[in-house]
Simulated assay, not measured.
Amino acid sequence: MSAAASLAHQLGAKPPAGLTLTEDETQQLADLIKTARATQGAELEASLLKALEIVPRPLRGTVRKVVGL
């Protein structure tokens, strides 16, 4: 996959026309976005699991299903 295609995939849209980056810079930006999203997802899941600790134990299974964990 080309760097431009990789960046478009990460952005979910075509990159802005005024974006002037080299092939290496474009790939690096795509990789940084991918890493940031993975980190953000992991942190969000960890915070949701931590928040479940205040839910009474008998309700945790139901709450997990509701929030999608």
Rank of each mutant, 00 (worst) to 15 (best):
M1A: 12
M1E: 13
M1Q: 10
S2T: 15
S2I: 15
A3Y: 03
A3E: 02
A3G: 03
A3W: 01
A4F: 13
A5E: 15
A5H: 11
S6Q: 15
L7H: 00
A8K: 07
A8C: 09
L11H: 05
P15F: 00
P15C: 02
P16F: 04
A17G: 10
A17K: 15
G18N: 14
T22I: 02
D24H: 13
T26A: 00
T26E: 00
Q27F: 01
Q28F: 07
D31G: 04
D31Y: 06
D31C: 04
L32K: 09
K34C: 07
T35A: 13
A36I: 05
R37V: 08
T39F: 11
Q40K: 07
A42N: 06
L44S: 12
E45K: 11
A46N: 13
A46T: 05
A46K: 11
S47E: 14
K50F: 14
K50I: 06
K50L: 12
V55Y: 04
P56N: 05
P58C: 04
P58W: 09
R60L: 08
G61S: 15
G61C: 08
G61Y: 02
T62H: 14
R64C: 06
R64K: 15
R64M: 14
V66W: 00
V67I: 13
V67R: 01
V67F: 00
G68V: 02
